[in-house]
């Protein structure tokens, strides 16, 4: 080998059917068409869902989301009770889960030695891996009796002057569903919060400690406060997950389409009514009404996820510019 043997071949090699340029554009085209297939899939999903619920939209219009009368036999459908049930259970779940998750994330990121933190993180993510049907089963046979025997009586005695804590508890009901939801979204919020805390530069922590802050004050000043918008984003994503959760809720909420003040009473959510009735629905109007319920649920989760995306995007951009 020496340099006199240098041969140049610059244009297309005859060995190949296609030039490299066309190979590259072809592969890019292929990838792009797969991308558009997936985008098309979501579009078709939205279109089909709307089309199927069309006769219900025509029949009930806006009344569908302002009335709560739901009777498949008489073919009268109003979905307000389900919207209410969905929002209430998710809201209580966030109230329970968000503070807990933030504390757990702080504990793992700021207090624990590395290996304990990793193990804890792994265990928390294991909760996320448990199928929701298992949560439902456990909620039905383990949690519901505990709510009936201990939690509900305690709440009734302590805060019984509030209407939401009045009335009997049968175990299954809004409160049980909310607790199950809270357990299920803790991992989501925790791992997102951990990511948010990790991004805080360690020199900010050191600056706070150098000023004589206790660890609590350090976490408050240097970790929690600058991460607030990220924490909100994490909670909103958790909310999005809670809104759409189906099986666990369907098994413990009691499935009664009524708006009752007491959180001990049974209720129903958008997702649970679909799970309960879709397979057995016979009339076209019933199917359409259930599809419309699905569409409402879709729109709600879409909006919530969109907000979360916006908050997190805003947050990461701010971090990036810092």
């Amino acid at each position: 080998m020496n340099s006199s043997s240098h041969k140049l071949q610059l244009s297309g090699d005859k060995k190949y059917l296609l030039s490299f340029k066309s190979q590259d554009s072809l592969s890019k085209l292929l990838l792009r068409s797969v991308a558009w297939t997936v985008i098309g899939l979501l579009t078709i999903m939205i279109i089909l869902l709307t089309r199927e619920s069309f006769i219900a939209i025509e029949e009930f219009g806006l009344e569908f989301i302002t009335t709560s009368y739901w009777n498949p036999v008489l073919e009268e459908f109003g979905g307000l009770a389900f919207i209410y049930g969905t929002l209430v259970t998710s809201f209580i779940a966030i109230l329970l889960a968000a503070p807990l998750s933030i504390l757990v994330a702080l504990f793992i990121q700021e207090v624990c030695p590395d290996w304990i933190g990793k193990t804890l993180g792994l265990l928390v993510e294991m909760i996320a891996a448990i199928p929701s049907i298992v949560f439902g089963l456990w909620g039905l046979f383990f949690l519901a009796p505990i709510v009936r025997e201990y939690i509900a009586p305690f709440l009734r005695q302590t805060f019984g002057f509030l209407p939401i804590f009045q009335g009997p508890s049968f175990g299954i009901g809004v409160l049980t569903a909310s607790i199950i939801l809270a357990i299920m979204i803790v991992p989501t919020i925790t791992s997102l919060c951990r990511e948010v805390f990790k991004v805080v530069p360690s020199h900010q922590r050191e600056a706070a400690l150098a000023l004589g802050a206790t660890r609590f004050e350090m976490m408050k000043i240097a970790v929690f406060s600058p991460s607030l918008s990220g924490i909100i984003g994490a909670s909103v994503l958790g909310l999005g997950r809670a809104l759409g959760e189906t099986m666990a809720v369907a098994m413990v909420i009691g499935n009664s389409p009524a708006i009752v003040a007491s959180i001990f009473a049974p209720g129903a959510t958008l997702a649970s009514v679909i799970a309960n009735e879709y397979a057995e629905s016979t009339s076209d109007m019933h199917v359409a009404a259930l599809c419309l319920i699905g569409l409402v649920l879709f729109v709600i989760t879409f909006i919530v996820n969109f907000i979360a995306r916006g908050v997190i995007w805003h947050y990461t951009r701010k971090q990036g510019n810092r």
Partner: peptide
């Protein structure tokens, strides 16, 4: 295209699984 795809994937992740059931049914 990538921007739209990324958005689609985010949305697909967020869609309640019961709605995916309805979609497959239809």
């Amino acid at each position: 295209t990538a921007k739209i795809l990324r958005f689609t994937i985010d949305m697909l992740t967020g869609i309640p699984s019961i709605i995916i059931g309805i979609f497959a049914y239809i």
